[in-house]
Design a protein around this nucleic acid. Sequence first.
DNA 1: GTCGAAAATGTTATATATACACTTACAACC
DNA 2: GGTTGTAAGTGTATATATAACATTTTCGAC
Lengths: 226, 226
Amino acid sequence: MMDRTYKDIQQITLAVDCIIFGFNDNRLEVLLVHRGFAPEKDRWSLMGGFVGNHEDLDDAANRVLKDLSGLEDVYMEQVRTFGKAKRDPYERVVSTTYSALILKDKYNKELIEEYRAKWFPIDELPDLIFDHKDMVDSAIRRLQRRVRTFPIVFNLLPDKFTLPQLQKLYEGIFQEEMDKRNFRKKLATMDFLIKLNEKDMSESKKGAFLYRFDEKKYNKTKNFTI
Amino acid sequence: MMDRTYKDIQQITLAVDCIIFGFNDNRLEVLLVHRGFAPEKDRWSLMGGFVGNHEDLDDAANRVLKDLSGLEDVYMEQVRTFGKAKRDPYERVVSTTYSALILKDKYNKELIEEYRAKWFPIDELPDLIFDHKDMVDSAIRRLQRRVRTFPIVFNLLPDKFTLPQLQKLYEGIFQEEMDKRNFRKKLATMDFLIKLNEKDMSESKKGAFLYRFDEKKYNKTKNFTI
DNA sequence: GTCGAAAATGTTATATATACACTTACAACC
DNA sequence: GGTTGTAAGTGTATATATAACATTTTCGAC
């Protein structure tokens, strides 16, 4: 902060936009809202909102997410701030993006309908307003980096999940196929992945064993890389 | 952006703060300014400034850096945005941080004196105002990640530099010593590091060969990891 | 009891990372 | 001009991580 007085400083509308990721049908998807109002009526956008004058930036992002999904205590990270003067052609708005990882079957469907929101696979995004496509892209790139060294993907899965599911999720995030044996070899070294005596029979005749992520055990060593 | 009108939205003072890195005396340092004005008079802070109403956020960061250093076209990256409502106890200010890599002997010394700025090694920082210590820490962590996969350290070195210098720089960034032979083995695989027929005799009797980073050659392959 | 479909499993080759010690060049000094 | 001190420069062996690749198992459906 330099030596100007705090008076007469120009103020700017500050917003947050959420890139909400979900794992559906073995694909990584993003939740988008359909704008029912001008400007840019009937186009798709990220879920966003303005930051209150006495509201923490992080809190604003959580509030916006809760308004749409009904969810609280969601895994969320700030991604970056988009601040081009002309990024919103109607008004000067600077927007900080947050990436959220949610569980598809936990969100509130009525709220989502109310906002006319829809899930889109990340490789089939519709046309988005303003710079929202750049926002999604940077969030995906960040997610791709983060999931290599932090066990955050479990936020996208139910408590019990199978290894084929987990692999499909990583493949959806990286947008590339992985070798099953090498993938499992890495997971086998991680003692915080607990194999249960239960199978999920819904995806195959043989059934796949269910696993659980033990966060406490993970916190002891915190070594994780895919 | 959700369905509120654009009217009556609260506006917030937006700032940028620059974490300016330099490599001096074989150490990684940060340039800080001494506040000569209230509030927080006589404490140290990052160089910052407010964002103009019609100014791109990136442009604001570049302007602030130029005001202090006289430098333009500096390597700069956005780091993250600090938005706690009470982070500045006097007024609501949201600040986006930018990390800059500058060359020590190129900046404008008069400007720096005018602002009462001073270089501090990153492991000997003074007490900083507000959340500026967190800002520096997150910029250092980001820098540590970035220099592993992008050849950005050359922004901290003169056009011609020696391998011992380069290694000292990496050691300063990582805050740990590295093995000379393994370090050079990696560099030897990079054909965009051009060995010159010149030695720098200032640091040793034997002298160390000077090298040059060839950006065009780098751009052909773009493979770089330390 | 045969078939089909997905789950589960190991080995080898290659690449990368780590650990480690001596020789060389040159200025400074006697 | 010979000795000394200091930093520059160099190679090899070992351990670890990554990548490539095919068969067997299970069980429901028919």
